[in-house]
Design a protein around this nucleic acid. Structure first.
Length: 311
DNA sequence: TGCATTTGACCCTT
DNA sequence: AAGGGTCAAATGCA
């Protein structure tokens, strides 16, 4: 991640610069709004009843700025890699059974294997979660008794969601499945996603922003996070590990809090937003992200689902 | 009929 | 060259 999106794509440099400026502006606006909100909260703690409407307003501003900034970022990298996934088979005119063989080489263009931007492993008894997956392959793996199944998000093509997962039965415990999640859901469910996030599919990640929890409490109740698998816990690693092995978002471990009461509510407390922000000169610290989210290690370890972080 | 799964082949990475 | 990941035609199912 980082600045790669500028270089990788082939849009005109002027439009890239334009987009970058816009994004920087949005992110800076978010930062400023956050600072204002911080001051506002401080003031309200000092005795005044606090004007709820303006803090909500600010919160909306912050989220909106980040969401738009991220969506721009997403659209940039999206356009950079556009055309790799969905190849149009060349209509060379042949028909019949020979068509497939003849066109196979052409059909498969520059086959870009999905770089594991973020991967994490979950061990569960079902291998299932609340997401809509579509199986696209199954393969026997060397030295493995059981085949590995490949799934992609159902919304890969209609919403460009890049999430995928691999499910493999564990050899030592055939009742359990090792599920490797690759990438984060950028899709949204129109039935479940709140208005603000519908503005852009990519913005669903903004739910994951580690904004102070107390600011999020009311919004949390009606937010449904479709971005994460329904595990008790999972860990997430920084984007583009190959690019930024020690990037700011390479958090060793953070608890992803899930609202058990609602089951499918999930509010990750750490998201590779750090990459985005830092690459644009923002100081995450000023947003007071840390400290408010405790990682309950004992709870994590007690969980029957084991999560492993991968880069 | 439309969508999901299966499966064999192709292609990329190591 | 081997192994793993992905594609897309064939097939199954509701």
């Amino acid at each position: 991640m980082g600045t790669d999106w500028v270089e990788e794509g082939s849009p005109s440099s002027s439009s890239v610069v334009k987009t970058k400026r816009l994004m920087e502006g949005l992110l800076l606006q978010g930062k400023n709004s956050a600072i204002q909100l911080q001051l506002l909260l401080k003031n309200s703690q000092d005795g005044s009843d606090g004007s709820g409407s303006s803090s909500e307003e600010l919160l909306g501003k912050i989220l909106g700025s980040f969401a738009q900034g991220l969506s721009l970022l997403g659209s940039c990298s999206e356009s950079a890699s556009a055309g790799h996934d969905r190849r149009v088979s060349p209509s060379s005119g042949e028909s019949g059974e020979s068509k497939r063989r003849l066109n196979l080489k052409d059909r498969r263009g520059p086959h870009k294997r999905s770089k594991a931007s973020q991967t994490w492993v979950k061990v569960s008894s079902t291998g299932e979660d609340n997401h809509a997956w579509r199986k696209y392959g199954q393969k026997m793996i060397l030295n493995s008794k059981y085949p590995r199944s490949y799934f992609r998000c159902t919304h890969k093509y209609d919403q460009g969601c890049k999430a995928a997962k691999q499910v493999q039965r564990m050899e030592d415990d055939p009742q359990m499945f090792q599920v490797t999640y690759i990438g984060v859901h950028t899709c949204w469910d129109i039935m479940k996603t709140p208005r603000m996030l519908i503005a852009d599919p990519d913005t669903c990640v903004d739910e994951c922003f580690p904004i102070k929890q107390e600011l999020r409490e009311d919004a949390k109740s009606d937010l449904t996070n479709d971005n994460v698998p329904s595990a008790d816990f999972f860990l997430i690693t920084g984007l583009g590990s190959s690019d930024q092995p020690n990037g700011p978002a390479s958090v060793s471990s953070e608890r992803m809090g899930f609202d058990d009461a609602n089951g499918d509510h999930a509010v990750p407390t750490m998201y590779p937003f750090g990459d985005v922000a830092n690459s644009h000169g923002l100081e995450i610290d000023s947003l007071s992200f840390d400290g408010d989210f405790s990682f309950d290690e004992s709870e994590f370890l007690a969980s029957d689902e084991v999560i492993e972080l991968r880069n």
